[in-house]
C-alpha cells in the first residue's frame, strides 16, 4: 500500500512534469506512473477473475477501478478521474460491497466454477484479447509516441458542454465548421433516468409485508434507496458545479 500512496502522490507530480519530457529527461515520469497504474489496474482485473472469494473480488475491483482513475488523471481527464473516484469507487462499489456483505453467508462466499469452464473461458478470453490487441496496434498514428501538448483544464468546458454550450477547442483533424453539439438533452435524460432508477431500486428492494420481517429485507430496503439517492445527488451536483465554473 505504500507503493499506492507514493504512486498517487507522484502521479500528481507526473502530470505537471509532462511538458519537460524532451530529450533532456532521462526518465519519463509520465510513462513510469502510467506503467505503475496500468500494472495495478490490469493485475487486479485479472485477480478479480481468478479469485473465488467474492469479498476479495470486490476488494480487487476497488483497487483496479481506483488505479483506472489514476490513469484518467494521467491522461489529463481530471474531472472524469474525480468522478470515477467519487461515483464509481465511492458509490457504486460501496453499494456492491454492501450487497456482497448482505449475501455473504458461508455457502455463497466462494461458489466454485468447474475447471472445464475455466479452461474454455480462458481460451475465449485469450482469443478476444488477441483480437483487441491487434486492433489497438493496427492503426499507425495510435502507436506513435505522444507529442507533448498543453491542454486547458477540462472541468469548465465539460460543465459548459453539459449545459449545451461548447467552449472547447475543436479536436485535431475535425473541421472547425463541423457541428459540435452540446449535451443538455442527454444530461436531462440521465437526470430523469437516475430518478427513475432511484424509485425502481427502492421498489424492488422494499421490505415485503411478512408476519416476521427478515433482517435482510429491512437492511436492503433501508440501504438501497440511500445509496441511490446519494449517487443521484452527486451526479446532478457535480454537473451543477462544473456548469457554474468560471
Amino acid at each position: 500500500m505504500m507503493i499506492a500512496v507514493l504512486a498517487s502522490s507522484m502521479s500528481m507530480l507526473g502530470s505537471t512534469l509532462l511538458p519537460i519530457s524532451g530529450p533532456m529527461a532521462a526518465v519519463n515520469w509520465h510513462s513510469v506512473l502510467f506503467l505503475l497504474f496500468a500494472a495495478v489496474a490490469c493485475a487486479c482485473a485479472v485477480a478479480v477473475v481468478l479469485a473465488d472469494n467474492v469479498v476479495r473480488m470486490a476488494f480487487y475491483l476497488v483497487l483496479s477501478l481506483a488505479s483506472t482513475a489514476g490513469l484518467f488523471f494521467l491522461a489529463g481527464a481530471e474531472f472524469v478521474g474525480a468522478m470515477q473516484l467519487m461515483i464509481y469507487v465511492g458509490g457504486t462499489l460501496v453499494l456492491l460491497v454492501f450487497g456482497v456483505m448482505l449475501t455473504a453467508q458461508a455457502p455463497f462466499v466462494a461458489i466454485k466454477t468447474s475447471s472445464s469452464d475455466r479452461v474454455l473461458a480462458g481460451m475465449v478470453g485469450a482469443a478476444l484479447l488477441a483480437v483487441l490487441l491487434q486492433a489497438a496496434f493496427r492503426v499507425e498514428p495510435w502507436r506513435r509516441p505522444a507529442v507533448a501538448a498543453e491542454a486547458a483544464p477540462a472541468a469548465t468546458p465539460i460543465g459548459m458542454a453539459l449545459l449545451g454550450v461548447r467552449v472547447d477547442e475543436p479536436a485535431a483533424g475535425v473541421p472547425a465548421a463541423a457541428v459540435r453539439s452540446g449535451y443538455l438533452l442527454p444530461f436531462e435524460i440521465v437526470s430523469i433516468h437516475l430518478l427513475v432508477v432511484l424509485v425502481g431500486a427502492a421498489y424492488l428492494a422494499r421490505a415485503k409485508r411478512r408476519r416476521t420481517p427478515r433482517a435482510i429485507d429491512v437492511a436492503a430496503s433501508s440501504v438501497g434507496p440511500v445509496v441511490e439517492a446519494r449517487q443521484a445527488a452527486r451526479s446532478s451536483a457535480s454537473a451543477l458545479v462544473s456548469g457554474g465554473g468560471r
Partner: peptide, 24 residues
C-alpha cells in the same frame, strides 16, 4: 501538494474511500 482544478471534488471523493477500510 498538487494544485488540481477539481480540488474540492478530489478531496471529498478520496475522503469517501476511507469507508472501504472500515467495511473490509
Amino acid at each position: 501538494g498538487q494544485r488540481l482544478n477539481v480540488g474540492v471534488f478530489f478531496v471529498v471523493a478520496v475522503l469517501g474511500l476511507e469507508v472501504f477500510g472500515v467495511i473490509l
